[in-house]
Amino acid sequence: MNTFTKAALASAISFSMLASGVSGVSAAASKSIIVQVNNKPVSGDVEPYIENGSTLVALNMLRSLPSVTINWNNTSKTVTVDNNGIKSTLAAGKKEAMVSGKKVTLSTSSVMKNGRVMVPLRFIADASGSEVYWNAPDRTVYVAKPTENMLKEIQSSDISVARHGAYDLPRIAKVVVLQGEEGDSMDYIRYFPKKQSSEFFEQHMDIVNYYRIIDTHVELLWSARMNLQQEAKNASLPFITNKIIEQNGKMPTIPKGVVYYNYSVPGGTTYGTIDKAGKKTRLGEATEDQAKEMFFSIPEEEQL
């Protein structure tokens, strides 16, 4: 497998994991709670459940959080979360906990279930410095905590590096992701507004999703389905040239031109610009090194 194929395939998997973790659950009408930690679904021996308005999860489901160590002391029956040297503790059966040196009262206590330690997700999130969001329609919990490298990248003055960081940031879906046409297409298009890295669109087949950086994570704020057989002008989003037939969330407005990166497996990466009137200009095919980086400089962007 060549370098381009690996990069494009990894990119495609990242998109698919978020969609499957949300829309796939809705389609199956599952009642199980899904937990996604930094864009990856995690599972434990005991399914998460809700009690007194709090979601309880198996302690080992959250061990993948960056810069966080989670331990269970079986003698004292105490959970300890070490977040870069800042420790928080929670004793089993207790509603009071110490979070970063401050005493807090939880809506429920940690318990033992089927031999596993079940802890309130909110406690773990607060103690580890993570962002948590409960998507009720999809019964999905999102836990988001970026790595130091991600934070460094989104602050870069190099627009290509900043875009890469934005795309890699942990995601939280604030709306229900629409399901697209059935098929095994590995064709993905990412759009970025001119000279912007804090917001982007991603299209796969007939579905387009809009993401925006909020603090230190990315939020999915709009999901739409298009009729690929019917062209239409969208005043708010001129680069979307097909009729939108269904949407969740509020459609954003992008009054400027965009650059696009079109990844296809097998195939290659093509790129170009789309001006604010919707005129698309294909500029060429990425080199292997450019494809490896995913997002690279497009000089013609300045002219949009």
Rank of each mutant, 00 (worst) to 15 (best):
Q229V: 00
E47W: 02
K103I: 09
D158G: 08
A58G: 13
A224N: 04
I245H: 01
P266I: 00
N71Q: 08
L59C: 06
D158N: 15
S198M: 11
F4S: 11
V117P: 06
S30L: 10
M98V: 15
K292E: 12
E246V: 01
I207A: 03
Y211Q: 07
D184I: 10
M112E: 14
S67H: 12
K250S: 15
L178K: 10
M112N: 12
V57A: 14
A144R: 12
I86K: 15
Y191E: 00
L221Q: 12
S16V: 05
S32W: 02
N60G: 05
T105H: 10
E181W: 03
S32C: 03
K152E: 15
A136S: 15
T105R: 14
L59G: 04
V265K: 03
K87S: 11
V132A: 15
W72V: 06
G115M: 07
S26H: 08
G165Q: 08
R282P: 00
A173E: 09
V111G: 04
I159R: 12
P170H: 03
M118S: 07
S157G: 05
I50D: 04
Y142G: 14
L65F: 09
V208M: 08
R212W: 00
S264I: 14
D206Y: 00
N83I: 02
K195N: 15
G44R: 07
K152V: 06
E301G: 12
Q229D: 13
M17N: 14
R122N: 12
L221C: 05
L220W: 11
S64W: 02
H164M: 07
V161Y: 11
Y271G: 06
W222V: 08
E182H: 07
L304S: 09
S54W: 01
V68N: 06
V37I: 10
V81D: 00
K31Q: 12
V81H: 01
K243C: 02
M61D: 10
L220H: 08
L106C: 04
E302C: 10
N262C: 04
G53T: 03
A235R: 09
R171M: 13
K233P: 02
S20H: 07
N84T: 11
T55I: 14
E131Q: 12
G129E: 11
V265C: 07
I189E: 01
A286D: 08
Y263N: 15
